[in-house]
Computed example of a mutant assay.
Amino acid sequence: MANNTKKTSPTVASQAAQVLKDPNASAIQKSLAGSALSQSGTSNQTGGKMETTASKVLNSPKYSDQTKTFAASVLAQANKERK
């Protein structure tokens, strides 16, 4: 499988770090934030389960713009060859 060399931007990484410290953030938001943050400055790629979660978030109207930003970042760093 080919590697995806995209990384989380410093702005999104900073927002993700803040969400992880927020006791009022939802579990899904923290999960996506953690995944996005783990891909900041590393060669980590999104796993299949997280890809599915991120896709569901992007397709649902119930999530905030910030949560969708994390989901989009996570999906952008997915392995392109995974089906």
Rank of each mutant, 00 (worst) to 15 (best):
M1N: 02
M1S: 09
M1G: 14
A2N: 10
N3K: 13
N3W: 08
N3T: 10
N3P: 04
N3C: 13
N4G: 04
N4W: 05
N4S: 10
N4D: 07
T5H: 05
T5A: 12
K6I: 00
T8M: 01
T8N: 01
S9D: 13
P10Q: 13
V12P: 02
V12H: 11
A13T: 00
A13I: 04
S14Y: 11
S14G: 11
S14P: 03
Q15S: 11
Q15C: 00
A16L: 04
A16D: 08
A17P: 03
A17T: 01
Q18C: 03
Q18E: 12
K21M: 05
K21T: 09
D22W: 08
A25W: 06
A25R: 08
A25E: 09
S26Y: 12
S26D: 15
A27K: 15
A27I: 10
A27H: 08
Q29M: 13
K30C: 10
K30D: 08
K30A: 06
S31D: 10
S31Y: 06
S31H: 09
S31A: 01
L32E: 06
L32D: 01
L32S: 03
A33M: 00
G34N: 14
S35F: 00
S35H: 04
S35A: 15
S35E: 15
S35Q: 11
A36S: 06
L37E: 06
L37R: 07
L37D: 11
L37F: 06
Q39S: 05
S40I: 01
G41P: 01
G41S: 00
T42D: 14
S43L: 07
Q45L: 00
T46R: 09
T46C: 06
T46S: 04
T46G: 04
T46Y: 05
G47M: 02
G47F: 02
K49R: 03
M50L: 14
M50Q: 11
E51H: 01
T53R: 07
T53S: 04
T53Y: 02
A54I: 02
A54W: 00
S55G: 13
K56H: 08
V57C: 07
V57Q: 07
V57T: 00
L58P: 00
N59W: 01
S60K: 05
P61Y: 05
P61K: 07
K62D: 13
K62E: 15
K62G: 12
K62V: 15
Y63L: 08
S64G: 14
D65G: 15
D65R: 08
D65I: 03
Q66L: 15
Q66Y: 03
T67I: 09
K68P: 03
K68M: 09
K68A: 10
K68E: 11
T69K: 15
T69I: 06
F70P: 01
F70R: 10
F70T: 00
A71W: 00
A72W: 10
S73H: 02
L75H: 04
A76G: 13
Q77S: 05
Q77W: 08
Q77K: 11
Q77D: 09
A78E: 05
K80F: 03
K80Q: 14
E81M: 04
R82Y: 13
K83C: 10
K83G: 10
